Computed example of a mutant assay.
Amino acid sequence: MANKLIVSLSPHVHGGDSVKKNMYRVLIALIPALLVSLLAFGVGAAIVTITSVAACLFFEWSISKFILKRNECTICDGSAVITGVLLAFNLPSNLPIWIIIIGALVAIGIGKMTFGGLGNNPFNPALVGRVFLLISFPVQMTSWPKVGQLTSYIDAQTGATPLAIMKEAIKTGDSSVLSKLPDSFSLFIGIPNDVTLGAGSLGEISAAALIIGLIYMLVSKVITWHIPVSILATVFVMSGLMHIANPIYASPITVLCTGGLMLGAIFMATDYVTSPMTHKGMIIYGVAIGFLTVVIRAFGAYPEGMSFAILIMNAFTPLINTYCKPKRFGEVIKK
């Protein structure tokens, strides 16, 4: 019997990647930061993370099932888990459970499912939830527990974060305030040398743990270097120039290792759905995020500007994609 010629649609060669596989690779990359947060905050970190993940899974399942009337279950693709972990990483370790649940509902319900689910959301869902909580519950969202209170949760003692100290130096115009900051190595590793300081959100206390995750994602080709490197390079250059011009601004190394800069640059700005598709577009996007972050930190009302910068540039992603659209194969450019 003659062999049949089977014609099928492209692609004819598959790289083996899938949404689910890449999502779980991102989760693996988040493990070092999660372990550091558990070592630093103990039961508080566990409660916040478990609550956030469980709430995100529940809201995605319930909205898909009862509101969107979909038969397909999407909670196993890893995207809701990542949203839950990233939302938790942007929260203090003493945040009440009911506020975490509200944040998860906003992240999944408004930030993701309102637009049709994974692949359709214009803004990073975890950041939508985080910014909503910051605006709605500013006191609870800016009470930062000190490191080492492993068995404390709601009643954990709080203190000023390095970002708050940097903001105080700018407001007062007194560079001596920066002497209260931990040394750069402590900030990088995530072990503060001053127990009176608050550490910040769960996922931002160790730049080293986040960089380990970045290296894993680069090696496994989950992301490319363009967005995180362009963000970090822009922040380093801008903050370095500002530090040289006026010592009330912290050194660039300190700026890179404080707040949610590393977390945002590595895990949230690189979100597939909300970031540009081309390498040129990614660099433009990253430089703009770095620029906005430094401007908001230095001149805005909030000590941190990373979340706002990413959300602003999420809105510009379609425009960047249009501007950086690759040339069609076989297209002739008329002179």
Rank of each mutant, 00 (worst) to 15 (best):
A126N: 04
T83C: 12
T293H: 00
I205Q: 08
I289C: 07
Q157A: 15
V255H: 05
M141D: 01
A126C: 14
K112M: 12
Y302N: 06
C324I: 12
M242P: 06
V13T: 12
G330H: 04
I296N: 00
L178P: 00
G78A: 08
W144S: 00
A29D: 03
H243I: 13
F188A: 09
S275N: 00
R297L: 13
D17E: 15
I82K: 04
K180S: 15
S230R: 00
R130T: 09
Y323S: 14
M1F: 14
L5D: 13
S62A: 15
Y249K: 08
C56A: 12
S18P: 04
P162Q: 03
A46I: 06
W98P: 04
R328V: 15
L91Y: 01
V85Q: 01
G78C: 14
K69S: 14
K325W: 11
M1I: 15
G190F: 01
T234D: 02
G109S: 04
G78H: 09
M141C: 07
I191K: 05
R328Y: 15
S275F: 02
V106E: 06
G203E: 07
N90L: 07
A298P: 02
I289K: 01
V295I: 14
K21H: 06
S152P: 06
L241R: 12
S37I: 06
E304V: 06
M23L: 06
F188N: 03
A169W: 02
N121S: 09
I211S: 10
V332W: 07
C56E: 08
R130M: 11
N124V: 13
G198T: 11
S275C: 03
M306I: 15
T254M: 11
G213I: 04
L105K: 09
L39F: 10
T224F: 11
C56M: 11
S201H: 09
G330I: 11
L35N: 08
I75C: 08
P125N: 08
S143A: 13
S201L: 13
V219N: 07
V106L: 12
I82Y: 01
D77T: 03
G330K: 09
S64A: 10
T293M: 01
M113V: 13
C76D: 15
K180D: 13
L134R: 12
V222L: 12
V235M: 04
S8C: 15
E72P: 04
